[in-house]
C-alpha cells in the first residue's frame, strides 16, 4: 500500500474546493486554481488526492498542471513577485525587469530563492496598463517600474524580514 502524506489543512482545502465544484472532472482547472491560491502551490500529493476525489487519473491531473504555466509545483516564496508581461507592460520594458529580478535574486522565472523569501513569476495583464510596466509583490502593486528600482523593491522586503 502506498501512503500519501498531507497536512490536514491541505486535505481540507482540497476537499472544500472539490465539493464546491461538485467533484466534477470538467471543473478540474477551477479546483486547481483554488488549491494553488490557498496552498501557494500544487505538490504531487495534492494532485494525487484531487485525482482520487474527482475519480480521474493523476497522470491526467499532472498533464493539466504541467500544461498551464500558471500552475506551479514549487512552493511560492513568502513574497511572490509577479511581473506583468502583457502587451503594454512588455513594450514598456517588462522583459528588462524580469532579467534584473533574475539577476538580483539569482533564480529563474518559476523558481523560489533558497531562503524561501522570494519567488518569481510572470503573468499576463493585471488591468492597470496605464501604470505599465507593473510589478506585484504579494498584493501590492508597483507601477512604472524601472530596472533601477528593482534593487529597492527587493530590499524593502528584505528589511521587513528582520
Amino acid at each position: 500500500m502506498k501512503t500519501i502524506k498531507l497536512s490536514s489543512f491541505a486535505i481540507e482545502t482540497v476537499e472544500e474546493a472539490c465539493s464546491d465544484f461538485q467533484y466534477r472532472e470538467d471543473e478540474l482547472i477551477n479546483i486547481l486554481h483554488r488549491c494553488q491560491h490557498k496552498l501557494g502551490y500544487l505538490p504531487a500529493e495534492v494532485q494525487e488526492i484531487i485525482a482520487q476525489k474527482l475519480q480521474m487519473s493523476v497522470a491526467k491531473v499532472y498533464g493539466v498542471v504541467s500544461f498551464y504555466s500558471f500552475f506551479s509545483m514549487i512552493p511560492q516564496g513568502k513574497h511572490p513577485i509577479s511581473i506583468c508581461m502583457g502587451t503594454a507592460c512588455y513594450v514598456r520594458g517588462a522583459e528588462k525587469l524580469v532579467d534584473e529580478f533574475k539577476r538580483q535574486l539569482r533564480i529563474d522565472v518559476g523558481e523560489t530563492t533558497q531562503d524561501g523569501n522570494f519567488s518569481l513569476s510572470c503573468l499576463r495583464c493585471v488591468g492597470a496598463c496605464g501604470l505599465a510596466p507593473i510589478v506585484m509583490v504579494g498584493d501590492k502593486v508597483y507601477g512604472r517600474v524601472s530596472a533601477k528600482q528593482v534593487k529597492d523593491i527587493i530590499s524593502e522586503y528584505q528589511k521587513s524580514m528582520v
Partner: peptide, 9 residues
C-alpha cells in the same frame, strides 16, 4: 497496492 491518504501535519 492502492494509495491511501494519511494526515501528516
Amino acid at each position: 497496492r492502492s494509495s491511501q491518504i494519511t494526515i501528516d501535519d
